[in-house]
């Protein structure tokens, strides 16, 4: 029932390698992969949750062997075909018949405005907050999408069935579990919930340490 992206708490990955601040892209193709992905998103054929899920759906072997931007490219290729924007034959050929610019093509002069506008995830909702800061809550026992088997969720395995306390209310936000499968925004209350390290890990480094996650109301029950 797991997907390879859900790696929080995993053992065996080795050291984290720091790097200097000035190096934004380590190769030209990294910069191209990022910019192509951002530019083609302007057509609005998918949302951020759909694009996250397509990367998570990569075969575990591919997810592990692909570098970061290789995951982006693989996800993008799959999305383009799924959305009917590119055919499998065109991917295989590495070329396509020329066509005039599409209406929503991102132009150079629109780049600053599009990047500055972003894509906020807060939405009005008919679902009122059931919790407030200070409340003790328990997360779902099973960290899974309730609508789609093997679907997208933002409750990591390591925090499933854990008891924590609400420390901040963020307002009502798009529910990724719904949005990633084009089932609608289904906005609901979102909270920051703090968990004691000792409630998540068998050998916490320090009893006073905490992990805080942003969790949707439907992931939580009173505890």
């Amino acid at each position: 029932m797991t997907r390879p992206h859900d790696m929080g708490g995993r053992y065996g990955d080795g050291p984290v390698i720091p790097e200097a601040e000035g190096e934004v892209f380590h190769a030209d193709w990294h910069a191209r992969a990022l910019s192509v992905t951002l530019a083609v998103a302007a057509h609005g054929a998918w949302n951020i949750d759909v694009s996250r899920h397509v990367r998570e759906k990569l075969a575990p072997m591919d997810y592990a062997r692909f570098s970061y931007y290789e995951k982006w490219m693989a996800g993008l290729a799959d999305l383009l075909v799924e959305a009917g924007m590119v055919t499998a034959a065109e991917l295989a050929a590495g070329d396509a018949a020329p066509q005039p610019p599409a209406d929503k093509m991102l132009t150079q002069e629109n780049v600053p405005a599009v990047l500055a506008r972003g894509g906020p995830a807060d939405r009005p909702s008919s679902v009122g907050p059931a919790f407030k800061p200070g409340d003790v809550v328990r997360t779902r026992q099973i960290a899974a999408n309730m609508f789609v088997d093997g679907g997208h969720t933002r409750l990591p395995q390591y925090a499933a069935g854990a008891t924590g306390r609400v420390i901040r209310y963020h307002g009502t936000h798009v529910l990724p579990d719904s949005s990633a499968h084009r089932l609608g925004d289904a906005p609901e209350p979102l909270y920051a919930v703090a968990f004691a390290a000792s409630d998540l890990w068998s050998h916490p480094e320090n009893p006073g340490d905490e992990v805080i996650l942003d969790l949707w109301q439907s992931y939580l029950a009173p505890a």
């Binding site: 030209d28 191209r32 192509v36 290789e70 383009l80 590119v86 396509a96 018949a97 599409a102 780049v111």
Partner: peptide, 26 residues
């Protein structure tokens, strides 16, 4: 990987779905 993104960029540019100048701007 470098050829992979080159292929995607070529296809999308030819189809009028991306503008190479916008990529440079990003």
């Amino acid at each position: 990987p470098a050829l992979r993104i080159k292929a995607l960029e070529t296809i999308l540019t030819r189809k009028g779905l991306i503008d190479p100048a916008a990529l440079d701007e990003i």
